[in-house]
Design a protein around this nucleic acid. Sequence first.
DNA 1: CTGGAACTAGACTCGCGTGTCAGTGGCGTA
DNA 2: TACGCCACTGACACGCGAGTCTAGTTCCAG
Lengths: 257, 257
Amino acid sequence: MQSNAPQRTPSAPPELTRASTLALSAPLSVGSSTRGVASTYAPKTALNKAARRQHILLCARDVFAKRGYHAAKIDEIVAAANVARGTFYLYFEDKRAIFEEIVDRAFARLGMSFVRVDPEDATRTVAEQIQENIRRIVSTLLEDRATTKILLSDAVGLDPAFDRKLLVFYEEVGRLLEESLVDGQKLGVVSEGDTKMMTILTLGALKEMLYQVVMRGLAMDEERIVDEIFRFLSKGCLRVPEQAPGTAEPVTRTARA
Amino acid sequence: MQSNAPQRTPSAPPELTRASTLALSAPLSVGSSTRGVASTYAPKTALNKAARRQHILLCARDVFAKRGYHAAKIDEIVAAANVARGTFYLYFEDKRAIFEEIVDRAFARLGMSFVRVDPEDATRTVAEQIQENIRRIVSTLLEDRATTKILLSDAVGLDPAFDRKLLVFYEEVGRLLEESLVDGQKLGVVSEGDTKMMTILTLGALKEMLYQVVMRGLAMDEERIVDEIFRFLSKGCLRVPEQAPGTAEPVTRTARA
DNA sequence: CTGGAACTAGACTCGCGTGTCAGTGGCGTA
DNA sequence: TACGCCACTGACACGCGAGTCTAGTTCCAG
């Protein structure tokens, strides 16, 4: 807690400012004996309000990512940010509010990372466009792993209100993907079948992949991830030669008995 | 708390008893004026200790499933089980212990629901055996949706110790599936490629499917779920005709520019 | 009839963590 | 030099919920 080496966020995302390196030498003196009140007042004035806010936000993100929402204490966030407890509440309503802001920002970034598929586009096939979207999503999520961790494990089941928020976003993504698949079906580049199902399965596969990479350090570069997901999407992995030409029941259940 | 219709469990189902409706007539009298102490003592003695423990366990499961671990209060569990606070601690060490037991039991059941694939088996193909396993897992998880909810959202990120437990189990499942895939590759019924990757993607798809069904009431019967997952596994959903015959890079990234 | 086991209601303790608030120091301004 | 503002501080008040404890009740076995 004492250490105040000019820490910086390891994976500082592009737009999120570099503010991490606070100018705090923290002289730590003025140890008056009367009452240890406000003894160390470090000159943090170099930071304007927006930057300080941002700094706290980033530190909170790291703490949330490391500990999880419930285990993350305000004290820890405050210590990480090198600010007093009161200062925290000067900038954020409460714990929940700062968490929500982290998630909201992540959603905003994510939301911009995929674009609607245009089946008319002559220069890129629907498949290519879907792949592009996957790439962008993966890229965005890997750019800031701490936040991705939070999205994948902390934001789920926190709160009914929060769940609704997640749900809405998730459905938005799902809808977009599903529309792409429907377009693809019309063009014959997507197999027939329930697109809603495909959407769920695809997103699940994507989520799990990222979970493995981010939560446990499964080593794998972005390129590889995108390729693997896309390949799985395209071909599956089982080869079941004795396939009925119809759509359903790859291996009928009762046929076994 | 007041209502107490004198009903009792008509039949004791196989293992997990449905004991919810306890036999409590609760005369509710003895309203002495001195101090309102222990006025209602319902004759619950019909339940032996094991059954009562089981009953509390089931009620706790429901509360955890509904509220999530942190929001679930002991008071609520106790109220749901129609048992005094003290009684709860007669049967369980603490909140964490009862939660852990719920999860452990679920794992035990799940662990028994899949069997090792035998590539030598003449009567069933590897694909069929994999499908059988999927069916069994899905069946087990849908049998007790409350517990599945808990597994999917509460048990994750609770605790480092807990996470490890989950991890171990998850890896066990993963290893089993992966071995099946490797066997399948040797027999030529599984496409070449990284089996670890396939495993992750498959489990992710499965998880997401179950999540949608259990957490939000996506209507879909067991049969359908198994078929959809298996189909996705077998064929994917995209058809990318211009495929290089090699293994990697379905649509090369740089080719686009 | 009696002792003990099982249970109840609920008051109580206690630790913890959030959010608050009176106070402090630096700095611009009069 | 004095004033006042404002960012900032950190000790403290407070609530909440887990787990404990006690006095009282019911039932049953011996």
